[in-house]
Design a protein around this nucleic acid. Structure first.
Lengths: 338, 338
DNA sequence: CTGAAAGCGCTTACAG
DNA sequence: CTGAAAGCGCTTACAG
């Protein structure tokens, strides 16, 4: 059997409550006693039982991470490992552990979130996506459970949720303007799943920039795909089949851009000579493509880090802390635009 | 306050113990009572408290995932998301949750593992790496705590640990032989960190194949790097500076190969015309390089899935179950060899 | 088939 | 500064 607080108490000749206070490093215990108790803990190899603690405390020092449905698709994309790295770093610093959802469908995930919340399995949750018509967020709001969203709430009053996001609208607008500045007028747009808010924002930015320049928006220049691998490739086929081919492409995400580049190479279309490409994320590997890609660095790590910072402060003092953090983005110019 | 077993008991006019038995679906409770209790649970919106359960049960239905130190480096590589996906799938199927280490250094991680084990935070652990002189594994063995290793134990009796691995030795040997069959004799080897057992195994396979063919091993043809991005690029510089340049390269991992291809392109060395390349892993994105890469598919997802299967069976019945699973590998021929 | 009671290993008012 | 006791929300022998 594991050694408990009682064993330590006996050994140190004090009451269990005293041992508990020593663990919490209460100022009401004399240094002398503390020493003695700590000695006993060492000798016996005492380690606190986490579940007992959580039960008595009603707090777990654990944060839940909720991934979008279908980790299959999600994990294809280095975005997630990188946010998690940011989350992980801050969580470690503050003494929190990490608990991961494993469900694949939306219903499974909602069920898991309910378990986390009702079961007292975590103290707070970071939501790694914002999806149109998502059910997880309304649930969390209704329960008044501490959570932070990476992304932007959609169809929900912004004041009700703490979130960390990029200005994706502006990023897409800037990128479109950048391409126009380079002389492009026929600009294609390869977006992600339209259920995700980020996709919606990208679209709006793209359209706004075009509008401002009085360039008509052509529906055939806009395609959406979820799968990053096949998605990029399929999109290229669609767009390159148009008579009036675009001379520039905005791609939702770097990994998709790999697919785009691959397919373009197969078609013997040269980048950037024949077509320019800008994408989003600046994932580590994006500087290893041929040609290297021009992309918007959205500071993924920071998104995770900041989200965790906000979440923890919300757990500790629910009524203070920022409710909204916008992480700046930056256009990284490399070889794929002309 | 959350609704507890007591509230349900009152509502259903039974004792708390009966409610508990209904939750566990004990066969000793009549269907009629079960119905009544379930009704009450629904009406009150009862959800079991996870920590209380774990405490009474001494089991958590949670699996710990231990990542190699420095998630920074680890998470650059799609290997990890993909194993985790495999783990996640099986864990979900069996009703287990996932808990992640967050530490960066070896000491931090060991400390976290101790907390997991002593604190009763998880029922078992899957170790995502096997490292020479690792301290985590000896600790787990000493504690007789259920764990499974993805990789191969090193300097530890194989009978003492359950592990899931590829035959990395054979894979490297085959790959080397494949290149020799294509006519190559000057074959370079770009390996990962020599602290990892997989690297050691790759090396042995490479050397063995060369030996069998009576081709002398040249130390200058062998380089090691940990960072996948810079690593690949640095390695190329080293190898291409040799007077007697290799005509083929074996690269530890696909992402590294992206760096290698990038650098080779910068140097105007054509793949596969001037130099052939084989690598390992067959990560999703590896079919998107230019040229697409020939690589060994090690079935990463399956490694995670199998490991979790073994772990759970070990938790449930410690004395049965396989102790060793070798996941087959397969050479995927694409465009990078000639 | 069901209940009363003890116990899992902590924490925390309350008392002194 | 320290202790005795109650409580966190479950489970599980034991008894009937």
């Amino acid at each position: 059997m594991a050694v408990t607080i009682k064993d330590v108490a006996k050994r140190a000749n004090v009451a269990p409550s005293t041992v508990s206070r020593v663990i919490a490093n209460s100022s009401r215990i004399s240094e002398k006693t503390k020493e003695r108790v700590r000695e006993a803990m060492k000798e016996l190899g005492y380690h606190p039982n986490f579940n007992a603690r959580s039960l008595a405390n009603k707090s777990t020092s654990t944060l839940g991470i909720v991934m979008p449905n279908s980790a299959k698709i999600a994990f294809q994309n280095p975005f997630f490992p990188e946010v998690i790295r940011g989350i992980s770093t801050k969580a470690y610093q503050e003494g929190y552990g990490l608990y991961l959802t494993t469900g694949q469908t939306e219903e499974e995930i909602l069920e898991e979130v309910k378990q986390m919340v009702y079961g007292g399995r975590v103290d707070g949750i970071v939501l790694l996506y914002s999806r149109v018509n998502d059910k997880v967020m309304p649930f969390l709001i209704e329960q008044e459970f501490p959570f932070v969203l990476i992304g932007r709430p959609y169809n929900i009053d912004e004041d009700q949720v703490t979130f960390v996001n990029n200005d994706n609208y502006k990023a897409a607008k800037t990128v479109t303007e950048y391409l126009m500045l380079l002389g492009h007028e026929r600009i294609g747009f390869i977006g992600g799943n339209l259920d995700y808010v980020v996709t919606v924002d990208h679209m709006r930015g793209y359209e706004q920039a075009l509008n401002n320049a009085h360039i008509p928006i052509r529906q055939e220049y806009v395609v959406h795909h979820e799968e990053v691998k096949e998605g990029g490739q399929d999109a290229v086929i669609e767009l390159m089949s148009i008579e009036d081919r675009p001379t520039a492409l905005i791609v939702a995400d770097d990994i998709m851009t790999f697919g785009v580049l691959r397919m373009l190479a197969d078609m013997n279309v040269k980048v950037p000579q024949d077509i320019s490409i800008v994408s989003f994320n600046n994932v580590m590997i994006s500087e290893l493509s041929s040609p290297t890609m021009t992309t918007v660095d959205i500071h993924i790590y920071e998104l995770g880090f900041e989200a965790t910072r906000c979440l923890i402060s919300k757990i500790i003092e629910p009524d203070f802390g920022e409710r909204k953090v916008i992480v700046p983005h930056r256009l990284i110019k490399r070889e794929s635009c002309k």
